[in-house]
Design a binder for these strands. Structure first.
Length: 113
RNA sequence: GGAGCUCGAAAGACAAUCGCUUUUUAAAGAGGAAAGUCCGGGCAACACAGAGUACGGUAGUCGCUAACGGCGACCGUUCGUAAGAAUAGGGAAAGUACCACAGAAACAAAACUGCCCUUCGGGGUGAUGGUGAAAAGAGUGGGGUAAGAGCCCACAGCAGGGUGUAGCGAUACGCUCUGGCGGCAAACCCUACCGGUUGCAAGGAGUGCUAUUAGCCUUGACUCGAGGACGCACGCUUACCGCUCGAGCCAUGGAGCAAUCUAUGGCCUAGAUAGAUGAUUGUCGGCCUUUUGGCUACAGAACCCGGCUUACUGAGAGCUCGUUAU
RNA sequence: GCGCCUGUGGUGGAAUUGGUAGACACGCUACCUUGAGGUGGUAGUGGCCAGAUUAACGGCUGUGCUAGUUCGAGUCUAGUCAGGCGCA
């Protein structure tokens, strides 16, 4: 689990990023990014109730994604806000390497665009 | 060996690496349902809450409990061969409403039809009518009569009054009198009992203004009573307190059929705030499969408890009824 | 966390105090009309029994699901499932 300092979640903040930020997407997840003025990277993960009904399953997805981000935290460009939105419940059961690959691709795409 | 009923422990284990939250820096860190939010309380604010009406809820008895619509024991009823299971189970003799279609008639007593008598005017009868969920709403048999009928008799059903025995009681088993007898109260209603409102998004903490008049408020019905700076504006509103020691947990003993209560000793056992309690790998368990291998339930605390209900894996224990063999 | 509402054929949407469920509209199917299609007209249309069949008659079932009350439940009661809404 990522340190609390590097997560963000407030209603206004998430909305601000969604409105102003740039989005790249794949079939399973999307990534919205925006530069911030805080001097460090912040990350949020969004899992809708429509993806998976049980709180246990959503928690598992959220934790796996946060863990994958933590493992590769150094790869993220600095001073930006990131929101990862999950679309499918496959994330809960897919191999860890595949999850890392999806996230890597997303970050690479957002860097290009 | 088969079919079934009841109870029910536990909720995979260990290791390595990398992390998260609280923090006394050394520890601790999701559940039996944390869920649904269906009830009940604590706690908080307004009178630690008052009176009456309205409105709502509950409904066998006795107990348990902080309280309950919960639980336990017992009684009645229904289902089951049984073990057992279910049970909104007060009142229809206070009143009102309703009972479609069919049927002569549907709630109150007669008309129609039938039967009997007849002086042909009428009178007697209410057991004929086959419809319906329900029809003299007292059944069966006999007597009786012009024809018939609880009109009379015997046996029997329910209800009400009185009464005896057993039981704290619901009730059970009797005796006696009455001759009262459709259903429906999960229709209105009556009776008894219970219920103030809002909820941790409660509430507390800051600054300024108004001042015992008026006004407003005491919340979401109305009236009364009693009282209050309660009022208004700004600020706070991702921060702090509330926030976890509690009707707490464990062990042993005692009381009780039990729910439960109690004595002694020990223990401190999540407190996050978009939300920590995790991720990955390996080994061993359990189940399935010829093997490779696959599967390993339901499900995530958000102020805290007591229940109920629903979801779901299930070691094991006790019991019942058939079958076969001895 | 607290409070509230709604579930009826393929779709929208009716059903007065409990009494034959599916009015009405759309859609769909078949036939007629057309060279062909559209439009228009006529008839039918919840599901199952139902298979090789125009399928009648008939039976069973059916108002999200499971029970209960009642002679009788879409309607009343309880539980449950699903969907939706409000309060910052």
């Amino acid at each position: 689990m990522l340190n609390k300092k590097y997560r963000f979640h407030s209603r206004g903040g998430v909305r601000f990023v969604f409105q102003k930020g740039k989005t790249v997407r794949t079939q399973k997840m999307s990534l919205t990014t925006l530069d911030n003025e805080r001097g460090f990277t912040r990350v949020a993960v969004v899992v809708s109730k429509k993806v998976l009904k049980t709180a246990v399953g959503r928690n598992r997805i959220r934790r796996r994604v946060y863990e994958a981000i933590r493992q590769n935290f150094e790869d993220l460009p600095e001073k930006r806000d990131y929101i990862f939105t999950v679309f499918t419940k496959d994330i809960a059961d897919m191999p860890y390497k595949d999850l890392e690959k999806i996230l890597g691709d997303l970050v690479a795409q957002s860097r290009i665009s």
